[in-house]
Computed example of a mutant assay.
Amino acid sequence: MREFLLIGIGAGDPDYLTLQAIKAINRVDVFFVLDKRAETAELTRFRRQVCEQFATDRPWRFVTLQDPVRDQGQERYTSVVEDWHDARARLLEQAIRTELEEGQCGALLLWGDPALYDSAMRLMEIIQARGNLALDYRVIPGITSVQALAAGHRIPLNRIGEPVHVTTGRQLAKGFPEDLDAVLVMLDGDLSYRKVMEEDMEIFWGAYLGTEDEILISGPAKDVTPRIEQARLTGRAAKGWIMDTYLLRRTRRSD
């Protein structure tokens, strides 16, 4: 039996690692990395830095895998993502079989938390369902960009009596929820809030949260949108990638 850990390493600051994550890292023999492209090599370097800083109890090594390219077709989004997950699972399964010996421990170091908009647990379930590899896995939670956003802006995620609604840019583009006053948005490559923005809305936006390149912008959404747009363009041009998160909400109505 091989052991596998899905370790949440936070949103970009090594100090975000929990004690549980550090203990888990020190049990790992092989760290697997699904590297998407040259532009995101910085994220791979960060994972290696985490290991060099915290993995001190035993020898370890990195195995880097070229992540399968996902079809960007929009008309059948769900099936496209499912096909991509299946391709990733097959790639990871083969790597575990050849690179991780029986009795050893492998791991994926996951940005943020494995439970929030991350596919790693789905990959493990696909591998187990295929039945070709005896694999036991555990999940180690991490600090998300949502928490880092709230801390950076010094705001609670919800006002008194409000629910917390977390969604994606793709879903927000379909319309702002009628029964809510606030949404937390992740995975938004197009700043979809511009399609649903109302006069009284405010935004708390952040990019590269937890890193030395962190950017925070807040204020009335219509007023600060040009600044956010420019910050995204500048960041992407400089780094080749951008990860941003934001809280969009209506001004609090009188009770």
Rank of each mutant, 00 (worst) to 15 (best):
W205F: 15
M124D: 06
R227Y: 02
V185A: 00
T245H: 04
E162F: 03
Q49A: 13
G206N: 01
A89L: 05
L65V: 05
L123G: 01
K195F: 12
E214A: 11
G10A: 10
G161P: 08
H85W: 12
I25R: 03
K174S: 14
G240R: 02
E212L: 13
L65M: 02
W84R: 03
P163S: 10
W60E: 03
K222P: 00
W205C: 00
L5Y: 03
L135R: 01
L187C: 06
I96N: 04
G112M: 06
Q53E: 12
Q147A: 13
G131F: 13
K195E: 14
T56S: 13
I242N: 10
L184W: 03
D255S: 12
M243P: 04
L135C: 05
E52F: 09
G219V: 02
A182N: 01
F176R: 11
I22S: 00
W241H: 08
A21S: 07
R252D: 11
W205Y: 14
Y137C: 04
I155P: 06
F62C: 06
K36T: 07
A11H: 07
F32P: 08
R130P: 11
E199H: 03
W60S: 02
M201E: 04
Q94L: 12
R154A: 15
I217L: 05
A150W: 10
T40C: 05
R61P: 08
A151Q: 10
G210N: 08
R159P: 04
P156R: 04
I127M: 06
W205V: 02
I160H: 12
I203V: 15
V80E: 05
L172R: 07
W205D: 00
R2W: 05
R27H: 07
T225C: 02
S254I: 15
E93T: 03
S119I: 08
K239W: 09
G103N: 07
E125G: 07
W60M: 01
S119G: 09
L172Y: 09
N158I: 14
A207T: 05
L172N: 10
A41G: 12
E3P: 02
F46A: 10
V80F: 05
R27M: 07
N26S: 06
E39Q: 14
D113I: 06
I242C: 09
E42M: 12
I7K: 03
V166N: 00
D113L: 03
H165A: 09
G210Y: 08
D188Y: 00
D113S: 03
W60Y: 15
Q147H: 11
L108A: 05
E93Y: 00
T78M: 12
T40V: 14
Q72M: 12
L110G: 02
L133V: 06
R250G: 08
R159W: 12
Y193T: 02
I7A: 03
L123N: 01
N26H: 07
R58L: 13
T56F: 03
Q104N: 09
V139A: 06
N158G: 14
W241F: 15
Y246N: 01
D213G: 04
L92M: 05
T40Y: 08
T78D: 14
G210T: 08
W84Q: 09
C51N: 01
R170L: 14
A134Y: 04
R58A: 13
E3L: 11
T251F: 08
V183K: 01
L6R: 04
D13I: 10
